[in-house]
Amino acid sequence: MHFVGVLPAPLLRWLRAVVSGSGAPVRDTAGPGEGSGPPAINELYHARRLSLVRLAVLMVDDLPTAEDIVQDVFAALYRRHGSSLNTIADPDAYLTSGVLNAARSALRRRRTARAYVPPPPDAAPAAEDQVLLAVEDRQVMDALRGLTARQRQVVVLRYWSELSEQEIAETLRVSRGTVKSTASRALTILRDQLGDRR
């Protein structure tokens, strides 16, 4: 990641310790009040915020997101345990675990957002198209919607595309007799709905 080149030496030592498996990572700052019980949350925030942000940046490769993650983890810690942190055996480990989990969640959300493909818009006719159609044309369109899919295909291919019965039969992979009878039934339905205007 492009942030590695600007990492401070203590964080690089921490990374080397983690990668080599040589034990607990070296911290760049000793916790305030060390040896005298857990620090207050505001002391812990000032002591550990920067190193936790660097850890989150390594995970998500995005400084604003990393800062939000650390802020959220500290806020959750305060909501759950208050400001004294007396109920937590190792607040540093708690915070590190919280930042790592929140960073993984952020990466999952990012992957989900990138993978989302919005559904195609419905093929509804445009409003201006409907306005431009004459009343009779709208009646014909409505009548065509009342036909079966095969009947519409035959009518459109015969009277719009001006294909012969044989060409329609080859296109739809049916017999010529099927084309003829389907067209006849479709025209009967259309004449019943629209009236014979020939």
Results as ranks from 00 to 15, higher is better:
Pro91Trp: 06
Val174Gln: 08
Tyr116Gln: 04
Thr65Ser: 12
Tyr94Pro: 02
Val18Cys: 15
Val53Gly: 00
Ala126Phe: 06
Leu77Ile: 14
Thr182Tyr: 11
Val99Ile: 02
His46Met: 13
Arg114Tyr: 02
Arg104Thr: 15
Thr148Arg: 09
Asp122Trp: 05
Ser84Thr: 14
Pro38His: 03
Arg145Asp: 08
Leu58Ile: 00
Pro91Leu: 02
Val154Asp: 03
Asp92Ile: 09
Asp28Ala: 15
Pro125Met: 08
Arg197Thr: 15
His81Met: 11
Tyr159Asp: 14
Pro25Phe: 02
Ser105Ala: 09
Thr178Trp: 03
Arg110Asp: 15
Val174Phe: 02
Ala66Ser: 05
Ser184Phe: 12
Leu107Ser: 00
Glu165Ile: 12
Leu55Val: 07
Ala123Ile: 13
Pro8Trp: 04
Ser164His: 08
Ala93Tyr: 00
Glu43His: 07
Arg158His: 04
Pro119Gln: 09
Leu44Glu: 04
Gly33Pro: 03
Arg54Glu: 05
Met141Asn: 06
Asp61His: 07
Pro118Ile: 02
Thr182Asn: 12
Arg48Asp: 12
Glu162Leu: 12
Ser20Val: 07
Gln166Ile: 11
Gln130Ala: 11
Leu163Met: 13
Ser84Leu: 12
Leu100Trp: 01
His2Met: 05
Gly98Ala: 08
Arg48Phe: 05
Arg185Met: 00
Gln166Asn: 14
Val174Gly: 05
Ser181Gln: 02
Arg104His: 12
Ser22Met: 05
Val4Ile: 11
Arg150Ile: 06
Leu194Val: 02
Ser164Asn: 10
Gly31Phe: 01
Leu77Gln: 10
Leu144Lys: 10
Val179Trp: 09
Glu136Cys: 01
Asp92Ser: 11
Leu132Glu: 09
Ala102Val: 02
Tyr78Cys: 06
Asp62Met: 01
Asp72Val: 05
Met59Gly: 02
Thr87Tyr: 05
Gly21Ser: 04
Leu172Lys: 13
Gln153Lys: 04
Ser84Lys: 06
Asp142Glu: 06
Val99Asp: 07
